[in-house]
């Protein structure tokens, strides 16, 4: 019912003895003290727990830690380049893309994953052209739809879109 699990978090291998029931989210928060990843609903309904799993955005609350052993997990704590924040982290501050800040790590991780999806040509539910294979041009409608898996109850959506637009455009 429990066992040793090697989690590769922010480039570092961490060995934990975990109950099989422990989610990646709780492993990060309760076992690794990486509390930047937030628990908002614990059921994949809010996006606050979003991390990057092998570079793709995922809800850490729905992942069993034991099932992601060995895969590369990147959390909000692992985004900065040394002392230099990630451009999206800077942009969220510049555009006041948050208020309480609780959804923010998930928003930022999600946005990084989203930019990679768009660059790979993945369409969204609002894309007029599904068949195109080029990188998607992210207008505001595209950003809004693609970021809708991250709820913000403070209603900072306008700032969030502006922050992502700035980074996507640059």
């Amino acid at each position: 019912m429990s066992g040793d699990v090697v989690l590769r978090v922010n480039g570092e291998d961490r060995v934990l003895h975990l109950d099989n029931r422990v989610t990646l989210l709780d492993a990060l928060r309760e076992h690794l003290r990486l509390t930047g990843t937030k628990k908002g609903c614990d059921h994949g309904q809010c996006g606050a727990c979003t991390v990057l799993l092998d570079g793709e955005r995922a809800n850490s609350c729905l992942l069993l830690a034991v099932a992601v052993a060995g895969r590369a997990v990147t959390t909000v704590e692992g985004l900065a380049d040394g002392a230099e924040p990630h451009p999206l982290q800077r942009a969220f501050i510049a555009h006041d893309g948050f208020q309480c800040g609780y959804c923010t790590p998930g928003q930022i991780c999600s946005a990084i994953g989203m930019l990679a999806e768009a660059a790979a040509g993945l369409p969204s539910a609002v894309s007029a052209d599904l068949a195109g294979t080029a990188a998607v041009d992210l207008d505001d409608e595209e950003i809004r739809e693609r970021m809708s898996g991250n709820l913000c109850r403070c209603g900072a959506y306008a700032g969030i879109v502006a922050a992502i637009r700035e980074v996507a455009g640059g």
């Binding site: 994949g44 996006g47 979003t50 799993l53 793709e56 955005r57 995922a58 809800n59 729905l62 992942l63 999600s110 994953g113 989203m114 999806e117 369409p123 969204s124 539910a125 894309s127 599904l130 693609r146 809708s148 898996g149 991250n150």
Partner: peptide
């Protein structure tokens, strides 16, 4: 099929 897929859940859930 693609539209249905992209209409479901969120991008994070679709990753998994």
């Amino acid at each position: 099929l693609t539209r249905a897929l992209l209409s479901g859940a969120s991008a994070q859930i679709r990753t998994q």
